[in-house]
Design a protein around this nucleic acid. Structure first.
Length: 364
DNA sequence: AAGTCCCGCCACGTG
DNA sequence: CACGTGGCGGGACTT
């Protein structure tokens, strides 16, 4: 029994067995990496992080990037958390750019220090940005102090009765979670935090494997996006073997890559438009992918030994992979070198505008 | 086995 | 009610 088709299908809508398996060659492995949120975010940034962009339509993004809208929401929500974007109207966002990050970060830092009432209002961002400049993390009280995210107290009872806030929806939003996650770094000496710790902090004390697991899942999503922006980098705790993330902070816009960047293949980049291979093969258990040749860099072990926060912001791009933002702002699109992918990749202009590759999982 | 995290169902909120 | 949003978590994919 249990003969369920491992692969699912989005196409399942009606005929589970309509897909012609096989196809023999072609379509090798479906690589999960190729569809990661981080990569998608990188592409998203590549597509919109250039002057001239002012408004972003979700549908536009979804189709250009070849993904479902649901995914765009994920990205946009965290991007908005750091000021890169702001929602303007339904289906529409305004691009503010990376330059808006410092202010947003600072604001988060302040809030973190005296967080008592966390009501986020984007009314105006008069962050009183005096020339105070950024002097590392001066002295912020303590890392976390209370968290209100979870309403359920350490008990079995899911909700008491009074807690039922009008909408805790916002409290559990990806955006807020992102801000709180960032506060963890910005408001404490900690520069390396594992997602478990983060989840724990952000959650109050109550744990519940279930709650934790979900929270961590979300954290992964956030971390991926933040990583593609170079705000954080993945590593592992100094002592433990556990993977964790290190705060890099805002070190200039990624666009600084100028025209001659050293990005080589990197074998990443989700194929724009045309792809969405999953529809075709979906994740069939094909093991021989081995797609990834060498995306390993010599960035192994940043050492970091005992964290010296003296030069924490020093590394502003140097040994780290610098290349998520391949698409430089040269003016032309990076369509130039990248036959890495098999298909055309990234033609912003030519992009999918003509046909709609988007996810056609649902339509037949 | 542990760590990641994609995918999309379906609950909400609003028009 | 339809549609835009986006929590949420199963379980597939990676390490």
């Amino acid at each position: 029994m249990s003969d369920l088709p491992p692969e699912n299908p989005k196409t399942t809508l009606s005929s589970p067995s309509s897909m012609p398996e096989s196809s023999s060659s072609l379509h090798h492995s479906y690589s999960r990496k190729q569809k990661s949120l981080g990569l998608l975010c990188t592409n998203f940034l590549a597509l919109y992080n250039r002057h001239g962009i002012e408004t972003i339509g979700l549908d536009d993004a979804a189709s250009k990037l070849g993904v479902e809208r649901r995914r765009i929401y994920d990205i946009v929500n965290v991007l908005e958390s750091v000021g890169v974007l702001i929602k303007r109207a339904k289906n529409q966002y305004t691009w503010r750019g990376f330059s808006a990050i410092p202010a947003a970060l600072k604001e988060l830092q302040e809030e973190g220090g005296a967080k008592d009432t966390f009501h986020r209002f984007y009314t105006n961002e008069n962050v009183k940005v005096s020339d105070d400049e950024d002097d590392e993390e001066e002295s912020c009280s303590q890392p976390h102090s209370s968290s209100q995210t979870d309403t359920s107290k350490p008990g079995s009872l899911p909700q008491s009765s009074d807690s039922s806030k009008i909408d805790n929806r916002r409290e559990k939003s990806l955006g807020l979670l992102t801000q709180n996650f960032i506060k963890l770094f910005v408001c404490s000496q900690a520069r390396i935090i594992s997602l478990d710790e983060a989840a724990k902090s952000l959650l109050g004390d109550a744990h519940s494997t279930s709650i934790m697991r979900t929270k961590v899942r979300r954290l992964y999503d956030i971390a991926n996006v933040l990583s593609s922006m170079n705000l954080i980098e993945k590593t592992h705790t100094l002592d433990s073997r556990k993977p964790a993330f290190k705060w890099l902070g805002y070190n200039g816009e990624p666009t600084s890559t100028l025209s001659c960047d050293l990005m080589h293949d990197e074998s990443k980049k989700r194929v724009f438009g045309t792809d969405i291979t999953n529809v075709t093969v979906k994740r069939s258990r094909t093991h021989e992918n081995a797609t990834e040749g060498r995306m390993k860099m010599k960035q192994h072990a940043i050492a970091d030994s005992s964290y010296n926060q003296s030069s924490d912001d020093a590394h502003e791009s140097r040994g780290y992979e610098f290349g998520p933002f391949a698409p430089a702002t040269g003016g032309t699109y990076p369509t130039a070198h990248l036959e890495d992918n098999s298909k055309r990749a990234f033609d912003v202009e030519n992009l999918v505008s003509d046909y709609r590759p988007s996810y056609q999982n649902r339509d037949e």
